[in-house]
Design a binder for these strands. Structure first.
Lengths: 331, 331
DNA sequence: GTGAAAGCGCTAACAT
DNA sequence: ATGTTAGCGCTTTCAC
């Protein structure tokens, strides 16, 4: 059995109230008693029970990160950013990976709603997050990456996906490409949609043709990238450049092109989304849109921490992206 | 304010006990009342308060993963494995990254000891984990990757680091290398020590020379790898092959060698530790020891789940590794 | 400066 | 089959 406050109290003949006060510094306690209490705590190796504290205080000093994605480089860094900032601000972090599964997500959210955490950072599986409007009334929520444009009052922090899509596409166009394919992985989310809008905007701007068949969906893994590019090249052999929206997929794309003896960037130029360490030493070095997921995570947690204190707090942040130019684009 | 069981009870004129029983299925309740209760729950959007439940039941159905490492590919996959298995078994997961900081680790463990979780999976910052002997009496703990050989009764799951080190080194030796360097990142942990033992064993076995200066420590990042290889080559120019013990560092190593126009594998052969997606398309493709961190994570959670139910449960698992042979070793 | 006691929202033993 | 009630270990008013 664990030692409780009551036992400590009895042992040194003070009240539990006093002990609580020296632990939390909630009231003045004489130096004498204070020492007595501290010693007893030390001696008994006493640790206050969190479950009791949580129940009584109606807060847990914990937050949850509910993320819906394959464990790629992007997500990894996001988790790291959130986790680090959480620790810095004295919060514990619950991690839920819902693997792009909406049912898991709703179940997790339901569980978290039960006062398990003081707030949630969520990267939802889809844009349709009506249930958030309700959840939000109970619990501070901040969205990362993906959001529902209809709910302007839920704070969010994202990369400027539109601009990133626009910039990457423009870069390809400036290299002379007129038939640019896109491989994305998750449909019906703002990240994908905004990047695609940027892509179309750039194409439109330069008066280039646009074909639905140049946009292909792939499973967000290496193998998924491989398959997707195979499909894309088969149905649209006129393609000379591809914009790949996930860091794991582009690896598969490179593998497949290589297997087919298609040269990068000579035959097909490539730009990826989400930079990662190895990109620089891949053959050829990959040009990527850099997203700073760790910064997104840190900022998201800061916003959450604010919103926990002040539920009215509300802020959107859209972070600039940058194009890390290496060789795969033809530069 | 949240709706409580009591309110539901009053609304439909049954006792809280009954409600608790229909929710938990702990006792037979008539179909009639059951329906009544369920409807009221639905109507009021009632969710049982976890903090109260946790306090009363003295368990949380949550586990913690305390990990002490840079967010490299290895850790990412480990987290994924643990997280997935946790969800499958109905547990929530708290994630604590202690960034190789022993003070953080102890603080986190202290917090977790306060009944926050039912068990802990820990990858400790160092081998000296005396405090674990005590912690373990309060809370089920299973170690991953790293352990303290003196505590045989703490369950653990690791890769067979010794064998992996032995195999990788042997492979290099068979390619004719006689001066093999090692770059590691974290000292005083069994992972590093066992890999190093494997390295020495192989060298001894083949009657090759051994020099302390061939073993160099680097910070476990890309930049750390860069610096370490610079040092290594400077102080021991006779080196013709390097065994790099972390996936991020080897990227820096490749970058640095390339910058110095040192050819891989002709001038320096390379084997890395911990395989990752991009390794296959790096120039040259990297030969790596494959570790299966996700499997380690899954197994660790299974052991923990067992130990939570039966504190006597006790098991060590050492997983086989394999050498993924590509080009950087000279094959 | 210190203590008594109520009560957070549940579960489970016990009574009916 | 259902209800009553005593806590779980803490925090926090209120009294002294």
């Amino acid at each position: 059995m664990s030692v409780t406050m009551k036992m400590i109290a009895k042992e040194i003949g003070v009240s539990v109230a006093t002990i609580s006060h020296v632990i939390n510094g909630t009231k003045k306690v004489s130096e004498e008693t204070r020492r007595l209490v501290l010693e007893a705590i030390e001696r008994n190796n006493y640790v206050p029970d969190m479950t009791a504290k949580n129940l009584r205080r109606k807060k847990t000093k914990a937050a949850a990160l509910v993320i819906s994605s394959y464990p790629d480089n992007y997500v990894t860094k996001l988790i790291h950013g959130v986790g680090t900032r959480a620790r810095e601000l004295g919060y514990s972090l619950m991690l839920v990976n819902t693997s792009e599964n909406e049912a898991y997500e709703m179940e997790a959210l339901r569980l978290l709603r039960a006062n398990m955490v003081d707030g949630i950072i969520l990267s939802p599986a889809t844009n349709r997050i009506d249930y958030l409007a309700d959840l939000q009334r109970h619990l501070p929520v901040v969205l990362v990456n993906r959001y529902d444009p209809r709910f302007e009052d839920i704070p969010r922090v994202t990369a400027d996906d539109f601009q990133a899509g626009y910039d990457a596409t423009t870069h390809l166009i400036q290299h002379g490409h007129r038939h640019i394919g896109v491989i994305y992985s998750v449909p019906h989310v703002t990240t994908t949609e905004n990047r695609l809008r940027g892509y179309r905007e750039a194409i439109l701007r330069y008066g280039l043709p646009f074909k639905e068949s140049w946009i292909v969906r792939g499973f967000g893994t290496t193998e998924g990238g491989r398959l997707a590019v195979k499909t894309l090249l088969q149905q649209s052999p006129e393609i000379t450049a591809i914009f790949v929206l996930s860091d794991h997929m582009i690896i598969g794309v490179v593998q497949e092109l290589r297997d087919q003896s298609i040269r990068i960037p000579d035959d097909i130029a490539l730009i990826g989304f989400g930079d990662f360490e190895a990109a620089a030493i891949i053959d050829p070095p990959l040009t990527n849109v850099s997203l700073q997921p760790d910064t997104i995570g840190r900022i998201a947690f800061d916003i959450l921490a604010n919103k926990i204190v002040n539920p009215e707090y509300h802020k959107h942040v859209s972070l600039p992206t940058s194009l890390i130019i290496r060789k795969s684009c033809g530069c």
